[in-house]
Simulated assay, not measured.
Amino acid sequence: MLTATSWPRRARAPYAPASTTKVLTSFAALTTIDPQTRFTTRTVLEGDKLVLVGGGDPYLSTKRAGSRDDRVFQADLTTLARRTAAALKKSGTARVTLGYDASLFDGPAVSPAWSDSYLSENIVTPVSALWADEGVVDGLRSRDPAAAAASGFARLLAQRGITVSGEASAVPAPAAASTIAEVRSATVAQIVETLMRVSDNQAAEVMLRHVALAGGGPATFDGGAKAVRAALSAADVDVEGLRLNDGSGLARSNRISPETLVETLYASSTSPRTSGLAADLPVSGFTGTLVERFMGLDAALGTVRAKTGTLRGIHSLAGYALDRDGRPVWFAVMADRADEDAPLEARAALDRVAAAIASCSCG
């Protein structure tokens, strides 16, 4: 038996959710996009003009992933450069100019609802349909990740005998250009699994853009927020008080009620298409963002799966706990006026609520 519940006091009042926002983004991604969809990064050629075209792969990397790396890293610029160079040489082309096209997503690349310090403190990369390593170059987040990816791609081509004339520039891919080579991302289901497990802000914002496109809207923060709301409403999830300004939860102005979180998670468990979302939640004391939590709460170790949310003074936890009789109880616990100087105490208080559910016979 599945029991849906939420914190009973003011359950429908919206709170600042922090990263539990990713529950809604991920649910919308799985419901609006085929979970087996992959995003393609490609090169196209017209004359001697080569263009690197971004397809919105949040986990495109520079180098090939090792055998022990997360399965989400399936596409890389090194492989794309190798394939592109081989195709160019086969056609007798050894010199090109390079452009890059990241026009799949619209602006702004940084949410107006984010703190200005997010950029200056190296917390976020501006959202782009083309980046490598989430825009991180030498440990710093690029302010222009598409240009950085193209610059790195030019070097990879040069290492494979293709001369790139001049600097890479932002250009639209010519409509008549032929595809030279491509690499494909992990599936949407695999991307969602990773972004939920590690609470990946960057990947969540890219997926918000894809949700917007799937919903027929512009690939912007606002377009994504509208598409998420539509996906929730279509699943009969209560969206009263819902306010979204991003897909990751970095915006302190976001508002989600515990009821919305619980109903979203419960709805995900009722459909094969979205059932993986619950399985993607970190496990108390063992995986992801819960690996160092629930210490000393033995009854809850391994019996709680939940998404965390943490910003200064904001703490949330949403998921399910197996009660003493082995029944899953869905819950959301939220606090957005916690003592900013005592984050560990606030986090522990939320863990104790989940542990209490795991210790009771709640049916």
Rank of each mutant, 00 (worst) to 15 (best):
V329G: 01
W330A: 12
F331E: 08
R312S: 04
A306L: 10
V333W: 01
G296P: 01
R305E: 13
T289Q: 11
V291F: 01
R337V: 15
A335T: 15
G302I: 02
G319R: 08
L297Y: 00
G326I: 08
G302Q: 05
R327Y: 12
D336M: 03
A335N: 15
R293Y: 06
G288K: 03
V329F: 03
V329M: 02
T289C: 06
D298L: 01
L301M: 07
F286G: 04
V329N: 02
P328C: 02
T289F: 03
F286N: 08
F294M: 05
T289E: 12
D323Q: 02
G285K: 04
G326Q: 06
A306M: 05
R327H: 10
L322D: 06
R324G: 06
V291R: 11
P328S: 04
G313R: 15
G296Q: 11
F286Y: 09
L311E: 14
V329I: 01
R327T: 15
D323W: 00
K307A: 11
Y320P: 00
D298C: 00
H315K: 09
F294P: 04
D336C: 11
A332S: 15
V333T: 12
G296F: 00
L297K: 00
L301T: 08
R327P: 09
E292D: 15
A335Y: 07
V304Y: 06
K307C: 09
D323E: 02
H315A: 14
R293S: 09
T287E: 11
L317W: 07
L297N: 02
T308S: 13
G326V: 07
A306C: 09
L301I: 12
A332L: 10
F331R: 04
D325L: 10
M295E: 14
T310L: 14
S284V: 04
E292R: 14
G319P: 00
W330H: 13
M295G: 08
R293P: 02
P328R: 03
G288V: 09
V283C: 05
L322Q: 01
R312H: 04
W330R: 09
A335F: 03
L311V: 11
V291A: 14
G313H: 01
G288R: 06
T310K: 08
T287L: 02
L311S: 11
R305V: 08
Y320V: 07
T287A: 02
D323M: 07
E292Q: 15
L297I: 04
G309L: 02
G319M: 13
R312G: 05
R337C: 11
A321E: 09
A335I: 12
V283N: 06
A299N: 03
V291P: 00
A318K: 05
M334F: 13
M295Q: 06
T289L: 06
D325G: 08
A318M: 13
G313N: 13
M334C: 14
I314E: 12
S316A: 15
I314T: 10
A335P: 07
T310V: 10
R312M: 14
V283W: 05
S316W: 07
L322N: 02
K307W: 06
T287N: 06
S316E: 13
F294R: 01
G309M: 09
A332V: 14
M334S: 13
D336W: 01
